[in-house]
């Protein structure tokens, strides 16, 4: 009966990944949205190479943030609606760990694909190679932080009917430091300077979010499931 915490984490993670694999559109939608937003800027503005290059860090980061905000709305919604959360709440396990596993599964299926296609899109924005590697690294550290912060908001709004805009309004301001650091790190690399400073700060934010967000989201889920 006494399940180890590691195996609890893996069981929840595995199941959420399995559910996601059965619904391909849930995986594809955020990436397609990300590509769409990034493609909008050259069309609406000016496709000149040097102009796009200056724009690239900000545009790619904003698009990644928006894609995450859109997909986060679904993080706990189905579990609250179909009663799974009631079951998880009455099991004798630390809820924060369950939340962490679910958030990781969600990031793997929605955040990681966005990170994976970002370098390709960066090429269409004529970004040089070392700026692309910084972009990739900053997204790899930054998007999990966004998912973790978003899990608090997703947990708070999981029981509400209309919550897409509300979620973005609530957690958007909390994610601004990640956006500023991530975009700026890429920008610094673009201008040929050393971006390790902001990357370390991004790492610090990830560590902070890893330790504080799951318990806060667990508290929020208890309220939403009430």
């Amino acid at each position: 009966m006494n399940l180890g915490l590691g195996s609890l984490f893996l069981i929840v993670l595995q199941r959420d990944l399995m559910i996601a694999m059965r619904r391909w559109s849930d995986i594809c939608n955020p990436v397609v949205f990300f590509v769409l937003v990034v493609a909008l800027f050259p069309l609406a503005l000016n496709p000149r190479a040097e102009f796009l290059r200056a724009l690239a860090p900000g545009v790619l980061w904003i698009a990644a943030l928006l894609a995450a905000l859109l997909s986060l709305n679904q993080l706990f919604r189905a579990d609250i609606e179909d009663g799974t959360m009631e079951q998880l709440l009455t099991l004798p396990y630390p809820l924060g760990l369950v939340i962490l596993a679910k958030t990781l599964a969600h990031w793997l299926v929605t955040g990681l694909p966005v990170v994976a296609v970002a370098p390709m899109l960066a090429i269409t924005y004529h970004l040089p190679a070392d700026a692309i590697s910084t972009l990739l690294l900053s997204l790899l550290i930054g998007t999990p932080t966004i998912s973790l912060l978003g899990s608090i908001g997703a947990a708070l709004t999981a029981g509400l009917r209309q919550s897409g805009v509300l979620l973005a309004l609530m957690v958007g301001p909390l994610m601004l430091p990640v956006l500023m650091l991530g975009a700026r790190a890429t920008d610094i690399a673009l201008s040929g300077d050393d971006p390790t400073g902001p990357l370390y700060l991004l790492g610090a934010l990830l560590a902070l979010a890893l330790s504080l967000a799951p318990p806060a989201a667990a508290m929020a889920i208890r309220i939403s499931a009430d």
Partner: peptide, 16 residues
């Protein structure tokens, strides 16, 4: 919960 998450974030936002 949101207010507490916000107040933890306020100094982080300020410094960034």
């Amino acid at each position: 919960v949101l207010a507490l998450a916000g107040v933890v974030n306020v100094p982080i936002i300020h410094f960034s």
